[in-house]
Design a protein around this nucleic acid. Structure first.
Length: 302
DNA sequence: AGTTGTCAAGCTAGT
DNA sequence: ACTAGCTTGACAACT
């Protein structure tokens, strides 16, 4: 099992998701941010490697406005080498990668324009993975989307739209259960119809489910991952068991966590910890599970 | 230097 | 018909 964290490292003092206002868009500013973000991403990945953290979610803001019409700059061509180099580091160290386009990426929206924009956004994510030379075990996770007053219709629309996506997108795309519209059972239903892997969010499942136990859930979503998809991915967060509403736990609750791990220890999966203090919680957990500590020397290939 | 409002993109529930 | 909340970091415009 690899354990990872999303997008931001709090120990390094750099950010790989620096952006700027659309109003102040300029090519120079864009280039500056891309350079910063790519440099920082490599720095984070090196930090992770040193701490034996081999799973990471790359920020969707890596290339600001990448899929926006305002961005006519050919970043794919001009940053090709730099991105390729990061990809080399990822592959060399067998780091698992995921990405998570945000809430505006909706492939089942009745609005055709929203779908078109979403498709462009997904293509941008797939382009990054392709430039890095990553295979189909690198995943782009999205939610199923809105219900729009008719869930079955919206699921059917998802399927129709999914079929229009490029092969490059489909190779990486997985769906994740959410906390109010599409639960695990809905995702499984969809998966059975278009053969898309289901990424399991433990926290969302606890809020919205069909009464499947954790173990039953693991059996079910694990089956949706084939060999080429890599080990199944799971998101875990320990926020919002709020004693006061709105209060988030700053760091991971190790008791909760060990309880969770014990229940599913027979399963093989990579785990994304969505916790505010990011890598600190990962290190805590790895220490607890005795996965962490020393830097392992890798054998270099090619 | 520190604080607060706002930011490309959307859905939903509550009014 | 309209708006706040979602979740959250970071920019931008203020003290």
């Amino acid at each position: 099992m690899k354990i990872g964290y999303p997008c931001i490292n709090r120990s390094l003092g750099c950010s790989s998701s620096k952006t700027f206002r659309l109003k102040s868009y300029s090519e120079n500013l864009l280039i500056e941010k891309i350079n910063n973000n790519l440099d920082c991403l490599l720095k984070i990945l090196k930090y992770n490697r040193e701490h034996n953290i081999l799973f990471f979610r790359i920020s969707s803001d890596l290339i600001p406005f990448a899929s926006h019409p305002v961005c006519t700059y050919d970043w794919k061509k001009l940053f090709k080498e730099k991105i390729k180099n990061i990809g080399y580091f990822i592959r060399e160290n067998q780091i698992r990668i995921s990405m998570h386009p945000d809430q505006f990426t909706l492939i089942n929206s009745p609005d055709e324009d929203i779908f078109k924009r979403s498709k462009r956004e997904l293509q941008y994510h797939a382009d990054i993975l392709a430039l890095m030379g990553l295979d189909s075990s690198a995943k782009i996770q999205i939610h199923v989307g809105g219900v729009y007053g008719d869930k079955e219709k919206s699921i059917t629309r998802f399927i129709k739209r999914y079929k229009k996506l490029s092969k490059k997108i489909k190779e990486h795309l997985v769906i994740e259960n959410d906390e109010k519209s599409y639960c695990l059972a809905d995702c499984l239903n969809l998966s059975a119809r278009i053969n898309i892997p289901v990424l399991f969010d433990v926290f969302h499942h606890s809020l919205y489910n069909n009464k499947e136990s954790l173990k039953a859930a693991f059996v079910l979503f694990s089956k949706t991952w084939s060999l080429r998809d890599g080990v199944p991915l799971v998101d875990y967060s320990s926020q919002a068991q709020a004693k006061r509403s709105g209060s988030h736990t700053e760091s991971i609750d190790l008791n909760d966590f060990t309880g969770f791990i014990k229940e599913v220890e027979k399963f093989d999966f990579d785990l994304m910890l969505e916790i505010k203090d990011k890598e600190k919680s990962v290190l805590k957990v790895m220490h607890k599970l005795k996965l962490s500590g020393k830097t392992k020397k890798t054998t270099k290939k090619a």
